[in-house]
Design a protein around this nucleic acid. Structure first.
Length: 412
DNA sequence: AAACCGGGGCG
DNA sequence: CGCCCAGGTTT
């Protein structure tokens, strides 16, 4: 993990927060110097660095509030305030929107949300609906399992919680399809309670802002992200803040080509400072894939023709023309002798070809001056080809490059 | 053609 | 309790 800026950086944050120019979308913030009204629990328990800053400049706002304040100021001007689940912003509507948004972008969700809420306007309607109705309203969104969870959870609310979504975090997160982040989003958005969220947008914003490397799926990384998410979440305007950080991730701090100049936090963003937005968040590591190895036989006759065979219908490169293969050098010699009279071989530089599910270590063996065995003639699946003919054949890319870069035959 | 993503489920 | 996967769509 890359550590965020030191103390001088925090001082800079304070300056930055106060000096955004008019016309850059931050005028409102600039015109309203920060006055700390109350200290939240979070501010009280803020980290060491924070305390250093405060002890030196105890009248200044903490960086915790800087992040939230800057974001809220941005949200007031540039955030989305007209989303259908914001008016009214009740728990049922927030919940439905959160589940839909887990799998689909806002613009796609809106018409589905409206149709759903029109047909099943309250939690009781959802609980009472039959599953076919729910799935029909969901159809086109995909991930139908989540619609079933939604339906099931509504019925559980009737059974356990008097027909309402519970306001207690644990009870909420115990419902199917609602985990820590969705429970937090519902409590924050619908009830203004101070709970953090950590969806994909927030993960992107936080890994960049704090320069947190490592795939967010890793336990340690995710733990850090929740800590940061919690630390930044303000006690006041929590609902707006939650919407704001999601909006920022969705519209400014996007995965490719983020719009850093439009970001209210770019002055303190580690990824922006160190030009790491392209590397953060760290992409999912390609899962460990096995390495297999093969020997590819290049049998070349006096006229420069090479022996190719068509691959079977199964496995990789099915139906393509390719070189004969063997599992090791011994087998390669035996296979070569079956096909031709040969007297020497040279190992060419081995290389690795990567497939989605394994990597293939290829050892090319060149047998020059091969005299085709008469017993095994050309047929539909096996032929000696002149190099000039190769361009008309379907060849695997590594085989093609191998054959086009063959060394000149050594004269006897 | 891969990345994406909160939560469920499995080991 | 922690790791892995499902499931359509987007980049």
């Amino acid at each position: 993990m890359v550590e965020p800026t030191g103390q001088s950086g925090w001082a800079a944050a304070l300056r930055t927060a106060r000096q955004w120019p008019v016309g850059n979308g931050h005028a409102r913030y600039r015109q309203r110097p920060h006055r700390r009204t109350q200290r939240t629990n979070r501010q009280r328990s803020a980290g060491r660095r924070d305390q250093c800053t405060r002890s030196r400049q105890s009248h200044r706002p903490t960086t915790v509030t800087i992040f939230a304040e800057a974001l809220l100021a941005w949200f007031d001007r540039h955030g989305r305030h007209d989303l259908p689940w914001q008016h009214p912003r009740d728990a049922y509507r927030v919940w439905l929107s959160e589940i839909m948004l887990q799998q689909t972008q806002v613009v796609t969700v809106i018409p589905y949300f409206q149709r759903f809420i029109e047909r099943l306007p309250a939690l009781g309607d959802l609980a009472a609906a039959d599953e076919d109705t729910v799935l029909a309203l969901w159809s086109g969104l995909g991930y139908y399992r989540r619609a079933r969870f939604l339906h099931k959870a509504a019925q559980l609310c009737i059974e356990r919680h008097g027909g309402e979504l519970p306001r207690e975090f644990d009870a909420l997160a115990a419902l199917p399809g609602i985990g820590r982040s969705t429970a937090g989003a519902i409590l924050a958005q619908a009830h203004g309670l101070r709970f953090p969220i950590l969806d994909g947008n927030v993960k992107r914003v936080l890994t960049r802002f704090h320069g947190i490397a490592g795939h967010p799926g890793e336990r340690e990384v995710e733990k850090q992200l929740w800590q940061r998410a919690d630390a930044h979440t303000p006690a006041r305007r929590t609902a707006d803040y939650t919407q704001a950080i999601m909006d920022l991730g969705a519209t400014v701090c996007v995965r490719t080509r983020p719009q850093c100049p439009a970001c209210p936090m770019h002055g303190e963003c580690v990824a922006h400072r160190d030009d790491l937005t392209g590397q953060l968040p760290t992409p999912k590591p390609g899962k460990a894939i096995p390495t297999r190895s093969t020997v590819m036989l290049i049998l070349r006759d006096d006229e420069g023709r090479v022996l190719l065979q068509r691959r079977g219908a199964q496995g990789v490169w099915s139906g393509l023309w390719s070189l004969p293969e063997a599992e090791n050098a011994d087998h390669a010699w035996r296979e070569a002798q079956r096909n031709a009279h040969i007297d020497d071989a040279q190992s060419l530089t081995p290389f690795i070809h990567v497939f989605s599910h394994y990597r293939l270590h290829i050892q090319p063996l060149l047998f020059d001056r091969a005299a085709p065995a008469l017993a095994i003639g050309d047929n539909d699946d096996r032929r000696w080809f002149a190099l000039a003919e190769l361009s008309a054949l379907g060849l695997p890319a590594p085989v093609r490059s191998l054959l086009t870069a063959l060394p000149e035959p050594i004269e006897p």
